[in-house]
Amino acid sequence: MSADVFLFWFLAILTLAGGLTTVLVTNPIYSALSLAFTMIGVSALFVSLNAYFLAGVQLIVYAGAVTVLFVMVLMMFDLKHELITFTRGKISGLVKAGLVALFAGLIVGSVLITSDVFSKSGGAPEAVIGGDTTKALGTILFSKYIFGFEALGVLLLIVAIGAVALARSKGGTHAK
């Protein structure tokens, strides 16, 4: 077993465990912390796929900003263990769990069935993306996808204004 293979299984198990804990733990703060753990795991998986820049951005944006926001909000609310963690109603809960399992089987099955297609078409060009992909990412982002990038900037501006408008409260230290 080579180092890459070991790394993949190690990270895959850790990430999946983190994801499952996020969903199953009753205390929301533990949920948020294990979500952060999952984000770090996904970032490490990005490194194993040679996407170094994206791995860094994943840590900065998801683990460093988004999940910290979750943790902070949860701590501010100071929620302890919830009484009703999951949906009520045994039948609807069973139906939902069954649907989830069915969906999982569907995706995994379809991936396994079509795996030949990918392995045939995807064997050769792997050498193209061998080393660091940061430069290529920057080039394509600012040429082919420049309008999408600009649209994202506008979106972020709107969202910032919206979030401030929503969270603004009367009183506090800045009341005039």
């Binding site: 170094y52 994943q58 840590l59």
Partner: peptide, 13 residues
């Protein structure tokens, strides 16, 4: 190779 991103990413934790 992306040292700056790495340092920023790690210290954002």
């Amino acid at each position: 190779n992306v040292g700056i991103v790495f340092v920023l990413a790690v210290s954002s934790l």
